[in-house]
Design a protein around this nucleic acid. Structure first.
Lengths: 187, 187
DNA sequence: GTGTCATCTTGTCAATGGCAAGATAGGATC
DNA sequence: GATCCTATCTTGCCATTGACAAGATGACAC
């Protein structure tokens, strides 16, 4: 099941994206090298260009993949806002490479229509979950504000977790820690 | 007041850090080039190495500067947690280059003792402000959780703002928008 | 005036991104 | 089956970069 021999790779596009996830997981998106990905996939240094044009093209594809993964993850988490928030953090930790690229628009073509569409899909799910939240303190809440606050707290927690900025006492279980923090907002 | 002529620059270390802030503001930390900084400062391509060793060394110095700037900003914002939160977001927007480096530890030597010290100073101020927050809902609050939630929401908002991920209706005034969102947590 | 050392320059090397031109093969058409 | 067509991949090249080595310069102490 490894038809990588022969002139044609067979599934180079996917192989390069997988290699990119692996490489970014090791050293971050800044250190990503197209030639390294080519070596990992066993092809020549110019092969990636055909599928993605340039480095930004590859990262654009990765961002699209990431937003779609995120949309699916949020959908699977169910209707509960707290559960969606925990799933958001869990996504960032488990798909760290995707997450780190997605929210670094200077690395890819953020205005690409495919990216915008995928990003809108993920944002739509998040908004749905927030809309399901009961109005706070007897209906005085501003749904726009609630949505932003929810997004900010989960995104901030995920970002700080990935950056290794959180103090050790937070623990090493992102889902549990996230639930604890988010509950401060939605309790 | 521009003694950049002559063999010795006079204040190259500062000039390089300033140039780095400018360059990162234009294209992000990933696109930073030591040789570009040297050109901006009017020195040879190898001059930066003497002051910072390598690229990570320069970014380490920038991170230290950033954490100290942040600590000062938070201190100046006063005792109020809401004001400190707004100041945090404002810092991220006004010192974007510093902020983007500070929370990307793979770019510099995050374990450098100077970095840790500066980071601790900033974190200490933030914790002080959280400690000043009256216990939530009659004393049932967990101060550790409150601190994390506050940090996460302001950090998340700042990060999303810088990434350009927020919807247009949030407006273009970060301080105002931040105050509105943070008030959801501390009201 | 002399020596010392931080500062800065020139020269070089391997690695990278990107481009151009060519090789290969898979599949459609006849 | 022969031929063409096109997507896929390779080789070769160039400018740029980070890093290192060796040497030039000059500020400052004595």
């Amino acid at each position: 099941m490894t038809p990588t021999r022969g002139y044609h790779h067979g599934d180079l596009r996917r192989a390069l994206l997988d290699a990119a996830v692996e490489a970014i997981g090791e050293s971050g998106p800044a250190a990503l090298s197209l030639r390294d990905l080519a070596r990992r996939a066993g092809v020549s240094h110019a092969a990636p260009a055909h599928h993605f044009g340039d480095k930004a093209g590859l990262l654009t594809a990765l961002a699209v993949q990431g937003f779609d993964l995120l949309a699916g993850t949020l959908r699977d988490a169910g209707d509960d806002l707290l559960a969606a928030g925990v799933a958001y953090v869990d996504f960032a930790v488990r798909h760290r490479a995707h997450f780190e690229v997605m929210f670094r628009p200077e690395l890819y073509r953020a205005h690409d229509p495919e990216v915008r569409a995928a990003s809108d899909r993920a944002g739509g799910v998040l908004r749905e979950r927030v809309a399901g939240l009961p109005a706070r303190d007897g209906g005085a809440g501003d749904p726009g504000r609630d949505a932003l606050a929810a997004w900010a707290i989960v995104h901030g927690f995920a970002t700080l977790w990935l950056a290794g900025a959180l103090p050790p006492r937070v623990g090493d279980e992102p889902r549990e820690a996230a639930r604890h923090v988010i509950s401060r907002l939605v309790e």
